[in-house]
């Protein structure tokens, strides 16, 4: 047996053991399907606050505050604005996760699924999360990334609306919700 195989085999086995614990920990701490019902009942909600967020992040507001209230007020507003943005980002991520959860439930209940669709969604959500974290990091480091956040919110909103519309159009939403309710009772 060569050295490389020995080390690769040991790392592989230990990696599998870690992965096993990680996966099992995940399936034991799931919130259950009640969460799914909630998702189906409540569409992503941050969309409703979009106009207020945009208003709050308007540059003219900040400039106006600096002119009228002085630099202390402007600095305070900047800090609060960052805090609001962070909260908004967190809300967007929750909405995004909810949409993914709907997709997972539909996949689970479908008699046929496409591995390419599933893999695509996995890959895209991973990329989204990575970029999302990057956007958040930039915000924390001082960038106000208003255009990014604004467009991100719109995109999540569009996704939510389209998903919701598709589900309603197909007339399956009630059936899914009923099924999930039955499952959660078992």
């Amino acid at each position: 047996m060569n050295h490389v195989f020995f080390f690769v085999a040991v790392i592989f086995a230990l990696g599998l053991a870690l992965l096993l614990f990680w996966a099992l920990r995940g399936v034991s701490s799931r919130k259950g399907v009640n969460e799914g019902l909630e998702i189906l009942e409540k569409a992503p909600r941050h969309v409703g606050n979009m106009s207020q967020i945009r208003q709050a992040l308007d540059e003219a507001d900040l400039q106006f505050a600096a002119e009228k209230g002085g630099p202390v007020l402007a600095a305070r507003m900047r800090l609060e604005r960052r805090h609001v943005m962070l909260l908004y980002l967190a809300a967007m991520r929750r909405d995004f996760d909810k949409l993914l959860r709907i997709a997972r439930i539909v996949a689970l209940l479908s008699p046929e699924v496409s591995s390419s669709h599933e893999f695509d969604r996995l890959r895209l959500s991973a990329i989204f999360r990575m970029r999302f974290e990057w956007t958040k990091l930039r915000l924390l480091m001082g960038s106000y990334v208003l255009p990014q956040t604004d467009m991100l919110g719109q995109m999540v909103a569009t996704l939510a609306t389209q998903t919701e519309m598709a589900m309603v159009r197909l007339g399956e939403r009630a059936a899914l919700a009923a099924e999930l309710a039955v499952q959660s009772e078992r």
């Binding site: 996949a107 209940l109 479908s110 046929e112 496409s114 969604r121 989204f128 389209q162 899914l176």
Partner: peptide
């Protein structure tokens, strides 16, 4: 679970994935 109609998945997933893309 009671499975849903196959067309739910096939019509919904491409839309979701396209939006994600």
């Amino acid at each position: 679970p009671a499975t849903s109609a196959p067309n739910v998945y096939w019509e919904l997933m491409p839309q979701v994935n396209r939006r994600l893309l």
